[in-house]
Nucleic acid binder design. Structure first.
Lengths: 340, 340
DNA sequence: TTGAAAGCGCTACCAA
DNA sequence: TTGGTAGCGCTTTCAA
């Protein structure tokens, strides 16, 4: 803006107004030892000309931006929201500003972010990829700032890594449902070619097997991790099979599944029990409140932020891999007597 | 990262590897007319040394970043999510990357963002302030990049402005409730010292008056625009007064209010009708689906993005102010016969 | 304590 | 078409 004319005041203008050198202005601005009088004059000059530091120039020199980015695939997924809530205060306390970027599950965009955002717009990056391609690995290797990946990462990629164990988590869900008397348990999963989609499918199969149940393909649907997709997928399952429970691979799809169950006039949890995953805010506010497998989103976010700060402080520390265990949060959507 | 040693390759390294001048490298990188052979050699050299542009240096020169920021008060509010979904594709099509920042309703942080983020980290800013203080106005005046404000803005502030009309919207909610037979309508509002909080309170009063109803202070509670706050506030109202409906000033608080209603064993909408505001995804997935006043979040986001792009193209265009009208979206939470 | 000046990596002007 | 080079605004030596 500032249509034509009126260019931004620089440190030169401040120096001129204060009658000191630009070096002195810089020192005052950065809180280095200076004469009281100089400090006062510089401060006045800053206010007078309306000076504000040029971030590009500063970071070109200092190689720091004071910013960290968190890139996720879909900002509408409350699981990421929990991470943001955990990451932000940690980074903020350390003096960093958190910038968010939603890639809309676009791999190219994710790579773009790795390349260019990690290229001096920010001091570090927390990345939540849905799948890790060779290009991800390549960019990760040549990234110029520390990157912490929340998700599965190949062993040879030089980055700190925080993992969930959604396979075990999916197993927990199935066992819980079987344990409360359900036998025909549907699965509404995300795409099989994403890391979480695949892991949850496996966990579902593990769970059935552990309970002595057979896998029935007609009870399984893959869709896109969204509410509408979950509703459509569950609708298809209900049309072709008799079910008494559904495990949805995230809370969004679980909400969709609940809609689908109601659409065919069946009750939750009386006729069909529903279990989601991620244990987001949505689970608590759903009606009936949704049983959900917590994958420790908040905890993973906090860990990621801690790891990033540590690496920012010491770039030579060995790379860390941590896994946060899942935990089942039982609510009314899966307990027989819970209807009010 | 890149622990010790190994500094980022620069344009110099590429030039050396390609056996050309840095000027030629720059030209190839920016797609300016160049010899075929030079182009090839530079491309190879880029790949060889693993070069990636230093964004700080580039934008120091060009005064452009290719980035735009959207700053909101709470990323957990789905109303902002709708805006993001509208803004992102517009900016993306124009070649900009969208960066999000959640200020957590912290005025200082908001000012900080205006000052420094708008100070060469991004080419433009879309800001959603909960309240506009003198400091906001001051920073807006001296901002070095175009800012579009979604929300109420004083007339003398030089920025494009997209507004909702939540006062009228709140009135719509009240009329709808009265029109469907409700008479003791509670209000669960946000803080009275925020622009939306105040506007919605006024609209509520307008609505009651227009329907010939008296304002009863015992039916009104102010809280924080969050689910838990909404639940607590509604709990207080239910304890001291008899109500047959509640208008909550956003969907989050409406969800909380629904919880509170159920906690005291009353039914929705049979005993108590509930109307929210913002018409977010939550309204649709709630049970029963939540009647909500749409404030045109998506539309406002799209308009803001358009205005920003226009100003980026022509800084001298006069400042624009647009208002998006509210619209009532009726769902089961407020219609008598809707229980399934 | 202060000022002069080098230089971060890049673009764009000018001359060849 | 190409290379040399000034300079974007800042920080940080080095001398004074």
């Amino acid at each position: 803006m500032r249509s034509e004319g009126r260019t931004a005041p620089t440190i030169q203008n401040v120096a001129a107004a204060a009658g000191v050198s630009i070096a002195s202005v810089s020192r005052v601005l950065n809180g280095l030892t200076t004469n009281e009088d100089t400090i006062r004059r510089v401060r006045e000059a800053v206010a007078e000309v309306g000076y504000v530091t040029n971030a590009a120039a500063k970071s070109l020199k200092t190689r720091q931006t004071g910013q960290i980015a968190f890139a996720m695939e879909n900002i509408g997924n409350a699981a990421y929201l929990a991470m943001v809530r955990a990451i932000q205060p940690v980074l903020r306390a350390a003096g960093y500003r958190l910038l968010l970027h939603s890639t809309n599950a676009d791999v190219d965009d994710e790579i773009e972010v790795l390349r260019s955002l990690g290229q001096r717009y920010v001091d570090g990056l927390v990345l939540c990829p849905l799948r890790v391609t060779d290009r991800h690995a390549e960019e990760l290797r040549r990234a110029q700032v520390p990157v912490v990946v929340i998700g599965q990462l190949p062993d040879d990629v030089p980055a700190d890594n925080v993992r969930a164990d959604s396979r075990t988590g999916a197993g927990l869900a199935v066992r819980h449902l079987v344990g409360t008397g359900r036998r025909r348990i549907a699965l509404v999963d995300g795409p099989l070619d994403t890391v979480p989609g695949r892991a949850r499918y496996r966990g579902y199969v593990d769970g059935l097997r552990a309970c002595g149940l057979d896998l029935d393909d007609r009870l399984v649907e893959f869709t896109d991790f969204e509410v509408a997709g979950g509703a459509a997928a569950m609708g298809r399952v209900l049309q072709r099979a008799d079910v008494d429970a559904v495990f949805a691979a995230n809370d969004l799809m679980a909400l969709g599944a609940m809609q689908a169950v109601r659409t065919v006039g069946r009750e939750i949890p009386g006729d069909v029990a529903v279990v989601g995953m991620d244990d987001t805010d949505l689970a608590e506010t759903a009606w009936p409140p949704l049983t959900s497998v917590s994958l420790g989103s908040h905890e993973r976010g906090r860990l990621a932020a801690d790891l990033l700060l540590q690496r920012l402080a010491d770039g030579s520390r060995p790379f860390v891999r941590t896994t946060v265990p899942p935990r089942l949060q039982v609510r009314a959507s899966s307990s027989e007597g819970a209807r009010t």
